[in-house]
C-alpha cells in the first residue's frame, strides 16, 4: 500500500457552518475509510443534508477541514470539481433528467471527458454501450431503457439516480434517503443494491428507516444538532442514552 492509500478516504475535522446565526453544523468530525459503507441517522435538522452539501462543495464551511483521499482539501473546490474528483451524490428528492430516456440519463452520467468539445463531437462506442447496459441490469431498469425518466415510478427514479452514480464511477457515493417513499419490497431491494455497490465503492447513506439500516448491517453514526452524538454498530448506537433521548425516543 502506498502512503496515500493508508489515509482515510474522507476526513472531516471540527467543521462548523451557520446560516443567519443558526448553527447547522457544529464542530463535526467524521472519518470514512476506503471501501467502507457508513449509515448516518439523526433527527430532522441534525445537519445530515448540510454535511453532504459541505462534502460536495455546495456549502462552504465557516471553519474546520474537509479532506478527501488524505490530502485533497475539498473546501477549495466547487461541485463540478468535486464530482470529477470522485464523489457522487444522490439527492433527497430523486433528481433525474426527466425529459431524457433512462439510457440517456446513464449515458450523461457516464465517466468520460466533461469538456465542451468532447461533448459536441461525442461518438457512442460499443464498450460504453456495454457498460451502461450492465448498470441498467444492476439497478433493475433494463426493461425501462427507452422510457423517459419522467415515466418512471418514484422508486425507479431513486434507482435510476443510484445508477447514474454508478455510471459516474465515483470513489465515494453519498446517498441521501434512498428509500423514502418506497414500498417495503423496494426497500429490501435497495438495501441489496447498496450492499452490492459497496463491494467496489465507499458509500455514505443517510436514512431514517431503521429497518433498512439494520438490513445494511454497517457502522452507524448518529448526528444531532450538527455534531456526532454516537458512533458504532447499530445496536451500540441504538442503546446509547443520548440517542434515545434526542432521536429514537423511549
Amino acid at each position: 500500500m502506498s502512503p496515500k492509500e493508508k489515509q482515510p478516504l474522507l476526513y472531516l475535522n471540527g467543521v462548523s457552518v451557520s446560516f443567519d446565526g443558526f448553527k447547522a453544523i457544529n464542530n463535526l468530525s467524521l472519518v470514512v475509510e476506503r471501501g467502507e459503507m457508513r449509515a448516518i441517522i439523526g433527527p430532522n435538522g441534525a445537519g445530515k443534508t448540510t454535511m453532504m452539501d459541505i462534502i460536495t462543495g455546495k456549502t462552504r464551511p465557516d471553519e474546520g477541514e474537509v479532506f478527501f483521499e488524505g490530502d485533497t482539501d475539498l473546501t477549495k473546490y466547487d461541485e463540478a470539481d468535486i464530482a470529477c474528483l470522485g464523489i457522487g451524490r444522490k439527492f433527497q428528492k430523486p433528481t433525474v433528467f426527466e425529459n431524457h430516456s433512462v439510457y440517456d440519463n446513464l449515458a450523461l452520467a457516464f465517466d468520460e471527458d466533461r469538456g465542451i468539445l468532447a461533448n459536441l463531437f461525442h461518438n457512442e462506442t460499443r464498450s460504453r454501450r456495454g457498460r451502461i447496459n450492465e448498470i441498467l441490469d444492476t439497478v433493475r431498469l433494463s426493461h425501462r431503457k427507452d422510457f423517459l425518466a419522467s415515466e418512471l415510478s418514484h422508486g425507479q427514479k431513486q434507482w435510476l439516480e443510484i445508477g447514474m452514480l454508478l455510471a459516474q464511477d465515483p470513489k465515494l457515493l453519498l446517498v441521501d434517503e434512498p428509500v423514502a417513499g418506497m414500498t417495503d419490497a423496494e426497500t429490501v431491494e435497495t438495501a441489496n443494491l447498496l450492499r452490492e455497490i459497496s463491494k467496489n465503492h465507499s458509500v455514505i447513506v443517510v436514512e431514517h428507516d431503521m429497518g433498512f439500516i439494520r438490513d445494511l448491517d454497517v457502522k452507524v453514526t448518529c448526528l444531532a444538532e450538527g455534531s456526532v452524538l454516537s458512533e458504532g454498530s447499530l445496536d451500540h448506537v441504538a442503546s446509547d442514552e443520548k440517542v434515545i433521548e434526542s432521536y429514537l425516543g423511549r
Binding site: F19, D20, A24, T49, T50, D53, T59, F91, Q92, K93, T95
Partner: peptide
C-alpha cells in the same frame, strides 16, 4: 434569505 438548499 440564506439557508440550506434554497434552490433544490
Amino acid at each position: 434569505l440564506k439557508g440550506r438548499a434554497v434552490d433544490l
